[in-house]
């Protein structure tokens, strides 16, 4: 299960971005129920009840002249003037909003004017829709959902591109410079995992040798790094990346017998210049890249689909 990388801290940023990129016309309701100025408030109340709405714009010759809201109806009920016509009692101090404005404008309008809805006018000043707070919320939810779908798709594509098939097992370990007390632990755990999963001994041994040599290489020479072991259906991959100092001449380092290890390291039985060649020898694919001041990346793979390397 992959997680969608929207952090709680940053998600308001996404919402703001959507509010600026979406326009009022993207969120408004376009099927606006209107009435003419000669309709009675009683008729309008009937429309509100039937359509479950709380405001009806009043049009005169196609132009927006006012709005009758549920508040106006309540006022009319109170004063017994339900049979008067809309033209007489409608609110005419209208706040309208332009269809081309960003949605963020509508949000500010709701804050500033405390109305429940705003008539939306097109470029020619004609009523083309109506917008309520729930229209905005609904549109935002749809947009957020679309955004998440896009992110998930991008993540899946990126993962498929970068990492290829998903491994059955993935383990990773950190290494510390000159920490010989823990050196080899990662490789031992990895080998145990292989054996537990039924890996044939000769394959487990190759993987363990490659893993151990790369691990020791980091312990002896680097300022620390990470080891990542992955078991795929058709291969075992050991990946080692350290944080420097880097190998000045990779060709030389791959030669058996070449070593820059110090006397102390040599006295422990390491640093004989056999590590990297050993790791390469047991691997079917061996990739090494090193940059001075940056670090060294090594990927050693053992294929499981050929010759004596048959697992199952």
């Amino acid at each position: 299960m992959t997680t969608v990388p929207i952090s709680a801290d940053k998600s308001p940023g996404i919402v703001l971005e959507l509010l600026y990129s979406l326009k009022v016309k993207d969120a408004m309701t376009t099927e606006v129920v209107t009435a003419s100025g000669s309709a009675t408030l009683r008729e309008i109340q009937g429309i509100m009840k039937e359509k479950a709405i709380t405001g009806v714009p009043i049009l005169e010759y196609g132009r927006l002249e006012g709005i009758v809201t549920i508040g106006d109806i309540i006022g009319a009920l109170d004063s017994g003037s339900l049979d008067k016509i809309a033209r007489e009692l409608m609110s005419t101090s209208l706040v309208t909003i332009d269809a081309e404005m960003p949605l963020s404008f509508a949000v500010t309008y709701f804050d500033r004017y405390k109305y429940g809805r705003f008539p939306v006018l097109d470029g020619t000043g004609r009523l083309c829709g109506i917008i309520t707070a729930s229209d905005i919320l609904r549109r935002l939810l749809i947009a957020l959902n679309e955004e998440i779908c896009r992110m998930e798709k991008r993540m899946a594509e990126r993962q498929a591109k970068e990492e290829g098939p998903l491994p059955q097992v993935e383990m990773s370990f950190g290494t510390m410079p000159h920490d010989f007390s823990k050196a080899g632990n990662a490789s031992q755990k990895f080998k145990k995992t292989l054996v537990e999963r039924g890996c044939p001994p000769q394959i487990a041994r190759k993987a363990a040798i490659a893993s151990y040599e790369l691990e020791l290489n980091q312990v002896i020479h680097s300022s620390g790094g990470i080891m990542r072991m992955r078991i795929f259906d058709d291969s075992i991959e050991i990946f080692a990346r350290d944080e420097g100092p880097g190998i000045p001449d990779v060709g030389l380092a791959m030669q058996e017998g070449f070593s820059t290890a110090n006397e102390w390291v040599r006295s422990l039985g390491f640093g004989a210049g056999m590590g990297l060649p050993n790791a390469k020898r047991v691997s079917d694919d061996f990739f090494i890249e090193s940059k001075m001041g940056v670090g060294t990346t090594i990927r050693a793979s053992i294929r499981l689909d050929q010759g004596e390397n048959q697992w199952n």
């Binding site: 010989f180 050196a183 080899g184 080998k191 363990a208 040798i209 151990y212 422990l268 039985g269």
Partner: peptide
């Protein structure tokens, strides 16, 4: 058969079986 009397030798022995 060795004179390397430290725990890294155990790790190596375990890895090569």
């Amino acid at each position: 058969v060795t004179i390397q009397a430290h725990k890294n030798t155990v790790a190596v022995a375990s890895l090569v079986g």
